[in-house]
């Protein structure tokens, strides 16, 4: 056989793989985004703005931002604590717990929401207990927060854990011999060394929380203007046939995610450049 033909075949295969990858990227990722834009402003920016001013629209965006911020704050504390426990301590059951951390990624979010509802809802064990004390968790902000914290839990643990794992511990020992108290050690030595993990984990947690749907719809009760987050709002609007209203919020949500992605890229390459000089 002619080896030249093989070479041509080779090139052909490579070219088709390339074309398929780029084509699929356009078809699967860019096209929907473009159509989203198309719908949102199909009838002009005026309609777009009026849709945004509808009752519940801006509220949903504001609630989404608030939940995402709160979720990020909560997880940067408990996620970091968990990362510490998993990397710094050796105890029986550590490996099991380490594996369990990723469970929120494996369980369908709707199931998560359902489980929380069963536990904290009016009929649930904890729900009854708290209800008797006039504390309502489900169908309110705390319920949303609980769901989002659960769903995004692994991100911070993994991001901070990876940094902790690779950071040499002798710097902390050095600080100890130099007379640092444990809190000084944490703020002056440990925290600066895990900053990058915290930043990356926060971005992941925040953007995941922005788009959270499955758990939210179960635990929120989807109360317009009160517990309806942006993704729930989009779904509800679409269901009632208001495609423009859904698109208007959808485009803002997509934009926000895109900005976050951009910011993360910026932060990370900024760091890369810094290390390059060093």
């Amino acid at each position: 056989m002619d080896p030249g033909r093989f070479r041509n075949l080779d090139a052909l295969v490579r070219w088709s793989v390339f074309a398929a990858a780029i084509g699929l990227f356009f078809l699967l990722i860019l096209l929907p985004l473009v159509s989203l834009n198309g719908y949102a402003v199909r009838e002009g920016f005026g309609i777009f703005w009026s849709r945004l001013r509808e009752p519940g629209a801006l509220g949903a965006l504001r609630l989404t931002a608030a939940v995402a911020l709160a979720t990020t704050a909560v997880n940067s504390v408990i996620g970091t604590a968990m990362a510490f426990v998993l990397t710094r301590y050796r105890f029986p059951g550590r490996r099991a717990i380490n594996a369990l951390v990723d469970i929120p990624l494996a369980i369908p979010t709707v199931v998560t929401g359902f489980a929380l509802l069963l536990l904290y809802g009016p009929m649930g064990v904890l729900g009854k207990f708290l209800g008797e004390r006039e504390i309502q968790v489900m169908f309110s902000f705390p319920g949303l927060l609980l769901g989002h914290v659960f769903v995004t839990f692994p991100f911070m643990v993994r991001a901070v854990g990876a940094v902790l794992e690779s950071a040499p511990r002798s710097a902390e020992d050095a600080a100890r011999t130099l007379g640092a108290k444990e809190w000084q050690l944490f703020f002056l030595v440990t925290l600066p060394s895990i900053k990058e993990g915290l930043v990356a984990g926060s971005f992941l947690t925040f953007s995941r929380s922005l788009g959270e749907f499955g758990a939210s719809i179960m635990v929120s009760g989807n109360l317009v203007g009160r517990t309806q987050t942006a993704p729930l709002y989009i779904f509800s609007r679409f269901n009632t046939g208001d495609v423009e209203g859904a698109s208007a919020i959808a485009i803002l949500l997509a934009l926000a995610s895109f900005l976050i992605l951009l910011l993360l890229q910026f932060v990370q390459t900024g760091r890369g450049v810094h290390e390059g000089i060093a």
Partner: peptide
């Protein structure tokens, strides 16, 4: 931290992101 023992580590264990002076002054700072 109260033993008054200076320790030079095998990998030096310097504090990254600090200057030479800040590293040396760390013990006095805390």
């Amino acid at each position: 931290r109260q033993r008054g023992v200076g320790f030079v580590f095998q990998d030096y264990a310097l504090f990254p992101r600090m200057t030479v002076r800040e590293n040396v002054a760390f013990g006095l700072r805390v």
